[in-house]
Design a protein around this nucleic acid. Structure first.
Lengths: 181, 181
DNA sequence: TATTGTTATACTCTATAACTATA
DNA sequence: TATAGTTATAGAGTATAACAATA
């Protein structure tokens, strides 16, 4: 399970306030509000590129591990295989990734980025960087690193795995059978 | 629209990673991950009291404005009136709040906390405070205030209203007709 | 005719489980 | 018999719109 973009439902923000004590004085309250806002901001920033945060995440994983199979993606994305099908379908229909049959075991797909997919991914990454800068403009430059440090510490306290390199993070939690590619 | 608890869907966390650059170095990425975790932690902490974050929020609003009507709650909670019905139903069935007809205009309900409701709310508030402390244990004491300050600044940049006193925050955005109680 | 609250309906997202094809 | 991927189904959660009561 990779940490990730919070789901910011477009139609209507499902937000609920704690309203006790001073909300502006609660780390939990502020984090959940801001987390939602950050998620939504990212989603909006990414929209012009034609990607959802989830598609972006999937493409990043494929980029890091070309030839990865759908089943493996299941873990870091934290979604069941049945849902992956649709997401991969969308990206394939857009010509951003392709499914190649693995000749050695024809049950597996090997996912690859197309040239167009790589270009789109690069554009999306630039957009993500720009969004990060825009989001952080209210901060003093000197404020940024300490903030990140505090957030990292809180994340560790919540057992949130931070980096998690795709597919490779926990290669053999149960170690069943031959590792699919 | 009040800032609020992020929706942490129980069945399965809908999380998606950005996975570009170092996620542990992105404020946006960390915030959305942590926001989700914070939201979930709060939800879990509140569960033993028998309240969802949304119910808790509603009760806090009623506590601050006894006799408030359902329609007014719509704004700070950011949900349509039709959904409010169910939430109020639940709380009423549990005997935590009651609907009284407003004799002056029998279209309105006047919502009030019951004695049991007040007791439950107090318990929930204690739980929220405890949860806040637990969540923040990874932080050095000296780290906490600067973190809050940075978060507040980011929230302001995202136009997130912080305190928002229930029902009273934006009493007349359009000013249509007599203000319901 | 307008407004509060309610009910009905439809739509989206999701997970679980049945299915296929390969092995 | 077991596994990768797919399709089918059902259950939440939600918004929109029609509705009833009151003004």
């Amino acid at each position: 399970m990779i940490p990730g973009m919070n789901k910011a439902r477009r139609p209507q923000a499902p937000r609920v306030g704690s309203a006790e004590g001073p909300p502006g004085g609660s780390v939990v309250f502020l984090l959940s509000s801001l987390g939602f806002a950050a998620s939504r901001a990212f989603q909006d920033a990414l929209a012009p590129v034609g990607l959802t945060p989830r598609q972006f995440a999937l493409m990043n994983l494929v980029a890091t591990s070309e030839g990865i199979s759908q089943g493996v993606l299941t873990q870091p994305l934290g979604i069941p295989a049945s849902r992956l099908v649709g997401i991969v379908d969308e990206l394939e229909n857009k010509g951003l990734i392709e499914r190649r049959r693995n000749p050695e075991d024809r049950r597996y797909y090997a996912l690859h980025l197309t040239a167009k997919g790589r270009a789109t991914l690069n554009r999306a990454r630039r957009v993500a960087r720009d969004n990060e800068e825009r989001f952080c403009t209210p901060l003093e430059p000197s404020e940024r690193e300490p903030l990140l440090e505090s957030l990292r510490r809180l994340a560790a306290g919540q057992q949130l795995p931070l980096g998690v390199h795709p597919a490779l993070a926990s290669p053999d939690e149960d170690d069943h059978g031959p590792a699919p590619m």
